[in-house]
Design a protein around this nucleic acid. Structure first.
Lengths: 336, 336
DNA sequence: TTGTAAGCGTTATCAG
DNA sequence: CTGATAACGCTTACAA
């Protein structure tokens, strides 16, 4: 374990005082080019790297950008992470993640953990923080971006889309394709899922074809097997259901497999629409209609907005709607 | 932004010196129960939380446990992360992730980033570090666990399984089921993939049925669509192939869909075996045979081993083989 | 069992 | 443009 090279040693080597080295490193234009050159030489010669802890202690600010997401295994969030990471990888900032497990209380306490590090910025998923968490965010004293969703009353900045509208668009698509007895498959039923359900319901009601008995939901987490189980339950109760809007792509895939098992032709006997448009939707047989959401981009924009603020640049509008788009495929080509 | 409550303030409130508070917090048994009670009261009254930066500066050690993985979107690694997180969530340690993007150079430089924070521990995926990275790990001065794989010459501790043997077992399964012209589908071809291929090859050669022309691989990342493309390519060249061992479950799923499109019955015309045993394998139609690897457990064990070392407990054996297990399902029931 | 003194590596402040 | 001085909040000696 080689001992750390300090600012003082660099200073000695360059024949200047430590504070000058510090300045040369942080704001090169504030020191004479000639001394700066000597310092740079010393830095590389000695292999100096700053100590983040000492910096944090002296400035009362860390270079940590905290990210709070519900799950580290759900592709929806990992895509957002990739976007964040992409824009922060080459910067001086370190990303630190916290997993809330969809629990507002955990989110609240993780927020506390982050805040005590005086983060440079904060990215949180969603807009459903507890009142206490909201207060913490309001006083965070750093740029905050809420991602995944947009809504009224942002803490600071926001980048996402309307889950309600996205689901409504998918539902309109099903109706436009000729399906008249559509059902809804949903799992976990977290706030975003509920808003998607609301979008489905609103559109179905507008068309006069909403039927609460065609809505099969569960509080347990969603996966492919659950999609199959939900579809089976739905069809047992309402065998004449002719399409399903699935709350996510895992459910949709499970529904497809279950339809195969039941001998229901897709899309003729049953239309299937997913949500998120994971890559596998396109590769399935038949390819499955889904709603594309710009997850990577959401993370990337969030990171950019924080960086802009931190670096004194223009972060652009505080509220960014990245929208969504129905990707129509064969699985919803219409009833036969 | 409420100003920070310091140790000194707590000390004042409790009528003791700062160092006593520090001790009471870190090793409660070294202070008189009575003073400890006064201190605890003061801590809660003031809402004191320690400053990690100050602690790190004073001790030359942070509470960060660094985790290096190739990808944040691949379910294989996110499951490991979940395991790590599960065992560290309630501890004093903070997890910090770095994504290498399967690039040894990136891994090397991220290691540098972590090391300058003097991490409490390090978890790295795989055993294929560069020589320079290896040197850094050897001198890390903290517990190090290599996960996902086991091999000779561990840096410190290791928890994983043999990818070669796991693939060999899957291949034996295919042969035992009666398949005689098995092929291999592989993407990305990172070191772990190559070792799996070697396992397939060894077993196929032992049975005298290895055919290099039945091995369809690509350097590009794997996904479901790629599984379909690879299978198509393979069958064009070798239409009589009767089974495929897929390097991972995404490829297997894509192969299944492509088989449907081509009108090849699974398992009668084509046996399909995946790798990792993601949940969807069980839910597919037909259910797809795969190799179960204990990813969550790998992460959990790695975290436990580091904690044990850090807390002076017995970490158990330094090399843990969590094995793997072929989950036989209908997709490999045998040729018709 | 508790306290004193000193310092961890950096930066803010104010002089020069 | 550069430097001396004093923090930042905590912990490791060592002493009492």
């Amino acid at each position: 374990m080689a001992k750390r090279v300090t600012l003082a040693e660099v200073a000695a080597q360059a024949g200047v005082s430590p504070i000058t080295v510090s300045r040369a490193l942080r704001r090169p234009d504030t020191v004479q080019p000639e001394t700066r050159a000597r310092i740079d030489a010393a830095v590389t010669a000695l292999g100096y790297v700053p100590d983040p802890a000492a910096r944090a202690l002296a400035t009362g600010r860390s270079d940590v950008i905290g990210v709070l997401i519900p799950s580290a295994t759900n592709a929806v969030f990992t895509d957002v992470l990739s976007g964040i990471y992409d824009r922060l990888a080459e910067s001086r900032f370190d990303v630190q993640y916290g997993i809330t497990r969809y629990d507002p209380g955990t989110e609240e306490s993780l927020l506390g953990v982050f805040l005590r590090q005086r983060p440079a910025g904060l990215i949180v998923a969603g807009i459903d923080q507890t009142a206490a968490a909201r207060r913490l965010l309001d006083r965070a004293g750093c740029p905050v971006v809420q991602v995944m969703e947009i809504g009224a009353d942002p803490v600071d900045m926001m980048v996402g889309f309307s889950h309600h509208d996205a689901a409504a668009a998918a539902t309109r698509h099903l109706i436009a394709q000729g399906y008249r007895r559509p059902g809804f498959l949903g799992a976990r039923m977290d706030p975003r899922t509920r808003r998607r359900f609301a979008g489905f319901r609103a559109e179905a009601e507008a068309a006069g074809i909403f039927d609460a008995d065609r809505c099969e939901t569960t509080e347990t987490p969603s996966n492919v097997g659950m999609g199959a189980a939900l579809l089976r339950g739905l069809l047992e109760r309402r065998p004449d259901t002719d399409a399903v809007f699935c709350n996510n792509d895992d459910l949709a895939l499970g529904a497809l497999f279950e339809a195969m098992r039941l001998g229901r032709a897709v899309p003729g006997d049953l239309g299937i629409c997913g949500f998120n448009d994971l890559e596998m939707m396109r590769a399935a047989e038949p390819p499955i209609t889904s709603v594309r959401t710009n997850r990577f981009e959401m993370g990337a924009r969030a990171a950019e907005m924080i960086r802009a603020r931190l670096e004194g640049k223009d972060p652009g509008p505080a509220l960014v709607d990245l929208g969504s788009e129905v990707q129509a495929r064969r699985s919803t080509e219409g009833p036969s």
